[in-house]
């Protein structure tokens, strides 16, 4: 039982880590997000190119379930992530 709990907490830690990684990517690539800017594509493309499928899935899962810690620039890119 105790084991199970610590595992859960680690899953959260993993998601937290992915959320902050994804926000960092969005902050850097969406730096000058303006109308007509393609930053959503660039953010999605970066995550698609560098993240393992499991990482993307966890991020999307989090976005669907809660998502409150995702930055606006990141949210704009989510629908372009490969599943």
């Amino acid at each position: 039982m105790a084991d199970k709990e610590s595992n859960n907490c680690e899953v959260n830690r993993e998601v937290r880590h992915l959320v902050s990684m994804a926000n960092d990517i969005a902050d850097n690539l969406g730096f000058r997000a303006e109308a007509g800017d393609n930053s959503a594509e660039r953010i999605a493309d970066h995550i698609n190119r560098f993240w393992a499928p499991r990482m993307r899935a966890l991020l999307l899962e989090y976005a669907a379930a809660d998502g409150k810690d995702l930055s606006a620039a990141l949210l704009s890119a989510l629908e372009k992530l490969k599943t």
Binding site: N7, V11, E14, H17, A52
Partner: peptide, 18 residues
């Protein structure tokens, strides 16, 4: 054809039990 895990993500995945 998909990228794999990087070191820090391997650690996270290890703690995530997978």
């Amino acid at each position: 054809e998909e990228p794999g895990l990087r070191i820090p993500n391997m650690f996270d995945a290890a703690l995530g039990g997978v």
